[in-house]
Amino acid sequence: MSGPLAFRLAAAGFALLAILVAALQARRPAPSAPAAAPIQAPRPVDAQLARCQTLGAAGAQDPQCLKAWDEARARFLGAPKAER
């Protein structure tokens, strides 16, 4: 087999392979969109945390902020209700 003929056969094989892969991809079903998470009303502790965030460094001495951060930490870390 001569060089140019082998090159043409390899190029044609590559083109056929690319067409086959494209046809198989076109037959795959499109992924469905993920379901939207239900919108929940903000918890009172979240409003308190937002207030504490606006206080800045002064929030570290505010008893309401310390309590809100403790509740948020327990909720986030999944502490058992008996420990709260």
Rank of each mutant, 00 (worst) to 15 (best):
A82M: 05
A41L: 13
A10G: 10
L16A: 15
V45H: 00
R43V: 04
A57M: 09
T54P: 00
S2H: 11
P63Q: 06
G78V: 03
E83C: 00
A22G: 05
A79G: 00
F14E: 06
P42R: 05
L66C: 01
A37Y: 00
A22M: 04
A6L: 14
R75E: 15
Q40L: 14
A10W: 12
D70L: 13
W69A: 10
A36C: 02
G13W: 04
P63I: 03
P34F: 07
A35I: 09
A37T: 09
Q61G: 06
P44H: 07
Q40A: 13
R28Q: 15
Q53A: 15
R43T: 13
A15F: 13
V45Y: 02
K81Y: 07
L17A: 15
A33K: 09
L17W: 12
M1A: 14
A58V: 07
A82R: 14
K67G: 02
A72Y: 02
A6T: 10
A18H: 02
P38C: 04
S32R: 11
A82Y: 10
P29R: 02
G56F: 06
A26Q: 08
L49G: 01
Q48I: 05
L5I: 13
F14Q: 06
A23D: 04
F14N: 04
E83Q: 11
A22I: 00
L77M: 12
A74W: 00
A26I: 01
G59C: 04
C65N: 02
A68Y: 00
R73P: 01
R73H: 12
A23Q: 08
R84H: 12
P38S: 03
A79N: 03
G56Q: 05
L24N: 06
A6H: 06
P80E: 08
P29V: 01
A10K: 07
R8H: 08
A72T: 01
F14V: 10
A72S: 05
R84E: 13
P34K: 05
R84M: 11
A36Y: 03
K81T: 14
A15D: 05
A11G: 09
A33P: 08
C52Q: 02
L55T: 06
A41Q: 12
P44E: 13
L55S: 05
Q40R: 12
A11W: 12
A33M: 09
Q61E: 10
Q53M: 06
A37G: 04
P80H: 07
A72E: 02
L77V: 10
P44T: 06
D46Y: 01
A57S: 09
L16G: 15
D70N: 13
R75T: 12
P42E: 06
L20S: 14
D62R: 03
A22E: 00
V45E: 09
L77E: 14
P34G: 06
A68D: 01
R27L: 14
C65T: 02
A36S: 11
L66Q: 15
